[in-house]
Design a protein around this nucleic acid. Structure first.
Lengths: 190, 190
DNA sequence: CGCCGAGTTGAACTGAATCAAGAAACGTGG
DNA sequence: CCACGTTTCTTGATTCAGTTCAACTCGGCG
């Protein structure tokens, strides 16, 4: 499964064969079955995680037991809890697999070290952060200024493939509405 | 006003006197009166902007003429439209001064050049992106999982000083609710 | 085959928006 | 420094989008 990662890396920046080997040396492969946790609330997250196959979901559970989906990650996306990673504090989130998945893990210390010695990796991290920032800003903009239907339309626009792969009740939660509302919106859409 | 910026930079990383001079050489100072625009929808944003004094607001205007506030920036914060900056496309946002303000501007090309030759600046940019990412994630989490009152409580928690400085109708817009709703929440709070 | 989670539908309810009007606060010019 | 117009904020009445509750259907999996 490292080949997926290697292909991804090569597509993003010019890595030497040696650098790729260095990366591979500290990468571990984790297979997850559908519904299996990668991270549970209360645990400290200490990895950088690349999704090589499948689909992950990050979410929190509130006092009433309701799940709130913060985001998804499919092939060639990264996942994890940056907050917990940076602070060393227990995570408030859960990450689990929506499908049978394969995730590549690099321990925080190893990743930091690689980031120091491989300029291309350093740049890649910046680029990802930058892109994520823009994506989040766009999401915030949509959330504070749109109706439920508009939010779903924007979601379809931004992530057409997600609508197919991801259970509707999770999409609804991601959009900040109930399953019933999303169901009704879909009925009046097609 | 550059001294404010210098103080900020020194507090964030170890800059040499020479580096600070290089930065100063490409920094221009812009004073803005209350309500004055720093950026208007349709313009291309080509700067990095540091707020040395005062308070800025970034917002969009929808088809109905309603304003939606994406964020604020007070002293020692950065502002601008990263989307437009990165893509070279016209901005969908407006940025204006909420108070009489002073903003320091560095042209994109100059900033990029400095970022290449000053490692501390490079690190600073990363740190800011990282922090902004976490802040945005937290905001998204609040928005999709909280009632209007909870959102306002979280806002007071996160930015107590904003509640004093920023007009309520802008806060309401930032939180994705109407002025009237915020007014009623405040009444039932104190 | 039967069960269970996911999705749909309907009816009643409610939190927040809208509409409308007045009261304060603010800034600008005389 | 005061007066007047303009924003900003508040309050009440009404409406509506979206939630909640509840029942039912469908499809997949054990």
């Amino acid at each position: 499964m490292f080949d997926v990662f290697e292909k991804y890396l090569r597509s993003k920046a010019a890595f030497t064969a040696e650098e790729l080997e260095q990366i591979q040396a500290v990468t571990t492969i984790k297979k997850l079955r559908k519904r299996q946790f990668l991270l549970q609330e209360g645990d400290v997250w200490t990895y950088n995680a690349f999704v090589a196959k499948g689909c992950m979901r990050i979410y929190s559970v509130d006092a009433k037991g309701v799940e709130h989906v913060l985001g998804f990650a499919v092939e060639n996306w990264w996942t994890g809890d940056l907050q917990s990673l940076a602070s060393g504090q227990p995570s408030r989130f859960n990450i689990d697999a929506i499908e049978d998945s394969v995730v590549l893990l690099i321990k925080k210390e190893n990743f930091e070290h690689l980031r120091q010695i491989i300029p291309a990796l350093h740049e890649l991290v910046n680029a990802i952060l930058h892109r994520s920032f823009l994506a989040q800003q766009s999401r915030i903009h949509t959330v504070i200024s749109s109706s439920a239907e508009e939010k779903y339309r924007a979601f379809l626009q931004d992530f057409p493939e997600f609508a197919r792969r991801i259970p509707q009740h999770m999409v609804a939660s991601y959009l900040g509405m109930t399953t019933e509302t999303l169901s009704r919106i879909r009925r009046n859409l097609v």
